[in-house]
C-alpha cells in the first residue's frame, strides 16, 4: 500500500449561513462538506476538481486547518489535526503551506519580495542567514536573487506566482495546498508555472493537493484525482484510470464539457 501523508475520515465542515442570519442571534449552520473519506499519498500531486460551490476550496482549507471540521478526523503524518488547538498546531504549521490563487492580493504591496519570503521563515525561528535563505528560495523558482529588493507591482503575473511558490516552499514543508494557482494566468505563463511546480515536486519530494476547475491541467500534473460535487466525493483514483474509464456520469459530463483546441463540428450539439 502506498505511504499516506493524509488519512481523512468522515470529514464534515459546516459554516454559518450568513444569507439566512436573523437580525439578532447566530446564523444557522450550513453543511458544506458531507462526510468525506479519502487519503493523500506521500510524494504525489493529487488533483481536486469540481465546479464552483463543490466544496473543493473548503476541503483544502480544512486540510491545512484554516478551518476546523465539525466532525471527522484528519490524520496528518500520524497526528489527528482535526480539532488540535492552535498552540499544539503551531509546530505542524511549518509543514502545512499554501499557494494562493491570486498572487496580486496574496502579496503585501508595501513589503519587498525578500521580506515577504522571509516572513514565514522568521515566524518559525529561521532568522539566521536569512538573506541567503531568501536567495536560495528565489533561485529555486527561477527568479534572480536581486528580486528580493523589488515590490509586487514591479513583477509580471507569472513572476508573482513564482514568489508565492517560493514563499510556500521556503520552509520545505511536507504538504503544500495549491488552490487554483494558475487560473488567473495566460496559457503561456500557466505552462511555465505548471512545469516549475512539477519539477519542484519531484526534486523536493513534495506532497501537493492541487485544486483546480480545469481537468486538462489536472490531467497533465496530477497522479491521483478526486472529483467533487456539492460537498461530496463523486469519484477518486489514479488520474490515468479516471480519464480512461470514468465510472460516474458526472465525471464523464465534466470531461465532455471541456472545449479542446480542435475543430469538432458536433461538439456543441453533443
Amino acid at each position: 500500500m502506498a505511504d499516506r501523508l493524509f488519512t481523512v475520515e468522515g470529514l464534515k465542515v459546516s459554516l454559518p449561513d450568513m444569507a439566512r442570519k436573523p437580525l439578532l442571534g447566530p446564523a444557522p449552520m450550513l453543511d458544506i462538506l458531507h462526510g468525506l473519506d479519502f487519503t493523500l499519498e506521500r510524494n504525489c500531486i493529487t488533483g481536486i476538481v469540481g465546479e464552483s460551490g463543490s466544496g473543493k476550496s473548503t476541503l483544502g482549507r480544512a486540510l491545512v486547518r484554516l478551518l476546523e471540521p465539525s466532525a471527522g478526523s484528519v490524520v496528518f503524518d500520524g497526528h489527528d489535526i482535526a480539532h488540535l488547538p492552535e498552540p499544539a498546531l503551531k509546530p505542524l504549521r511549518r509543514d502545512l503551506q499554501m499557494i494562493f490563487q491570486d498572487p496580486m492580493s496574496s502579496l503585501n504591496p508595501r513589503r519587498t519580495i525578500g521580506a515577504i519570503i522571509a516572513a514565514p521563515m522568521r515566524h518559525h525561528g529561521l532568522a539566521d542567514r536569512i538573506d541567503e535563505r531568501v536567495a536560495a528560495a528565489l533561485t529555486r523558482v527561477g527568479l534572480p536573487e536581486n528580486f528580493a529588493a523589488r515590490y509586487r507591482h514591479q513583477l509580471s503575473g507569472g513572476q508573482r506566482q513564482r514568489v508565492g511558490i517560493a514563499r510556500a516552499l521556503a520552509l520545505e514543508p511536507k504538504f503544500v495546498l495549491a488552490d487554483e494557482i494558475v487560473s488567473g494566468l495566460d496559457v503561456s505563463t500557466q505552462a511555465q508555472i505548471l512545469t516549475l511546480l512539477d519539477q519542484l515536486a519531484s526534486e523536493m519530494g513534495l506532497t501537493i493537493a492541487f485544486i483546480s476547475h480545469d481537468l486538462s491541467v489536472i490531467r497533465r500534473l496530477c497522479r491521483n484525482t478526486i472529483v467533487m460535487r456539492a460537498g461530496r466525493i463523486v469519484e477518486a483514483g489514479p488520474t490515468d484510470a479516471l480519464f480512461a474509464a470514468p465510472r460516474e456520469t458526472y465525471t464523464r459530463e465534466l470531461i465532455a464539457a471541456i472545449p479542446l483546441p480542435e475543430i469538432d463540428d458536433d461538439w456543441l450539439t453533443r
Binding site: 496559457v187 503561456s188 505552462a191 480545469d214 497533465r220 483546441p261
Partner: peptide
C-alpha cells in the same frame, strides 16, 4: 503554434504544456 502547444489537453497529457 506556441499558443497551441501551451494549451493543456486532457487527451494529450504527456505532450502538452510547452511554455512559449
Amino acid at each position: 503554434k506556441a499558443l497551441m502547444a501551451a494549451t493543456p489537453r486532457y487527451t494529450h497529457p504527456a505532450s502538452s504544456l510547452q511554455p512559449v
